[in-house]
């Protein structure tokens, strides 16, 4: 009985015009309507982070977002982070560190990491930042805290933290280098 509402949304650089039932979440709009299945549905209640996307540049949970409320916005999923020059440095780091097992949480982890690194660069503190008014250094403790909204049932956490640390500081070997060494 509820009528659909026209809206437009840009996903990974491509603009889509569609009409949605107001009940449709951004996650369902992406997956079921636009067939962009990068973001995953883990819990559908804001508790796991698998559905994380970048909405107008900020990391958010698409399962707790109503699609219609985001008319006109820009969404980037883990897929859309790649450019003609190759994979995003965060994605590269996840490969280099083997920061996954089944991979279900990975698209959300990568979007979350991109958002978290950006937040730290802008000086935004976290619960473990020793001096609230001081500088932010993305060490392992900071990364674990800032990534705590992304659960991994395979418990790949140790390597996820390493991957994010590398991506933030650009220190570790790339997958291509690792392969060359193998």
């Amino acid at each position: 009985m509820s009528t659909t509402i026209p809206m437009s949304i840009t996903v990974d650089g491509e603009r889509h015009d569609l009409a949605v039932d107001p009940r449709t979440t951004l996650l369902d709009a992406l997956r079921e309507r636009l067939r962009v299945t990068t973001a995953k549905k883990g819990c559908d209640h804001g508790q796991c982070g698998a559905c994380t996307v970048l909405l107008d540049g900020r990391r958010v949970l698409s399962c707790l977002t109503l699609a219609v409320a985001k008319d006109g916005s820009h969404v980037v999923t883990a897929d859309g982070l790649a450019t003609d020059d190759g994979l995003h440095p965060v994605t590269e780091a996840f490969l280099a560190y083997d920061a996954y097992q089944c991979g279900f949480c990975t698209p959300g982890q990568i979007c979350s990491a991109v958002g978290a690194i950006d937040e730290a660069r802008r000086g935004m503190p976290s619960a473990v930042t020793a001096d609230l008014t001081g500088e932010v250094t993305l060490d392992r403790t900071e990364i674990a805290e800032r990534m705590s909204g992304n659960l991994c049932r395979c418990a790949a956490y140790v390597n996820i933290v390493s991957a994010v640390e590398d991506a933030a500081h650009g220190t570790a070997p790339r997958s291509s280098t690792l392969e060359a060494q193998a």
Binding site: R59, L61, L64, S126, A127, T129, S148, G149
Partner: peptide, 23 residues
């Protein structure tokens, strides 16, 4: 807020997750 009302910043940062706090 961080300088004049540290308890406010600390309380928010103690809750939810980065994604949820953005929303």
């Amino acid at each position: 807020v961080r300088e004049r009302y540290p308890a406010v910043a600390a309380a928010i940062l103690a809750g939810a997750s980065g994604q949820l706090r953005n929303m």
